[in-house]
Design a protein around this nucleic acid. Sequence first.
DNA 1: GAATATAGTTTAGAGTCTAAACTATATTTA
DNA 2: TAAATATAGTTTAGACTCTAAACTATATTC
Lengths: 182, 182
Amino acid sequence: MINDINIWLERLTSLYNSQVRHAANTEGIRPVHAEILQYLSICNRYSNTAQALSEYLGQTKGSISQSVQLLEKDGLIERRQCSEDKRVTRLFLTPKAQAIAERIGKVLMPNLGEAKEANNALKSLLMDWQLTNQHKGFGQCQTCRYNSLLSDGTFQCGLTGESLSSDEVKLLCREHEFQVRS
Amino acid sequence: MINDINIWLERLTSLYNSQVRHAANTEGIRPVHAEILQYLSICNRYSNTAQALSEYLGQTKGSISQSVQLLEKDGLIERRQCSEDKRVTRLFLTPKAQAIAERIGKVLMPNLGEAKEANNALKSLLMDWQLTNQHKGFGQCQTCRYNSLLSDGTFQCGLTGESLSSDEVKLLCREHEFQVRS
DNA sequence: GAATATAGTTTAGAGTCTAAACTATATTTA
DNA sequence: TAAATATAGTTTAGACTCTAAACTATATTC
């Protein structure tokens, strides 16, 4: 009845959440603020909005809106209206917040090894889960079906047509879609 | 700089939290209440206390205490003082709560496959992480250094001396310790 | 140009969270 | 064995979070 793999996942998650709480405490901020800073430090330039945060964290946009206001008041986030779509406000970490995010990252992203099998296992777990739940989005461009490697060594996003550096394709994108499996 | 495996873990976790929130919403309860019911449905008989919940979820015992009170008021949890140690109150799910936990489990514990590699990958990830953070506890007895298989096919816990069924060794224990690697 | 969709804000009210002080029981130490 | 300390849990006050729903503003579709 109880599937071992799900128990590992359950525990891994509760441990992760525990660490977020602890790291936030150390920095003197709320856990949800730590999550927001963490997300903004690993998302790409298409994905740094309140709407994306709401989708990523699974909270209502009202809640995100309030948290972002507090973070702005504390000098951790800077908001800039998007010139192409004036409904959109893009969020940026201030240097102070970047330093915090980096310290939090050290706690949340310890060197867990580069093991190929673990990497593949987590990836296929995530694919399965996102597919069965019709959850779309949020993955690194380098694993996205719309990403292609150009002959000059740079990458290109098939959705926006823009070119991406090798650093950029490691960031999280809200438009991300896995390759459909045959 | 950004390690791929950590990004998968990060996303897996946010997705899991998202699902908890969603499942809780569907059941008309708070996310943290869902987590408490979920934990109590997979922990063993040594681990169903407020203290264990506090350690597992990484929250203060004051916070857990309040949540447990609300759950009791809603008829989802029953509290019984432990006769061996009267400081301890053991927590039990009511039938109503068991039904909820089962439905939540279906969402949080989809059939993610039994793949041996994924299983091993998650396990070693968790071991590494718990070790580097000096986090002890919370794992299935079947992977615990104190657990041994008796000749009659049952199991025995080396800490309590009690014997455990093959169902029981699949539950989470707060005293869990991995085998120390040589 | 009107209808609809999308991004984000605001509000009220219920609830969560923490630290710290507290009660009660158990264990250790002198 | 009595005193000191440790452990399990409760209570309190106050700051903060969360959601739903109504709202503004801009963009897209028909």
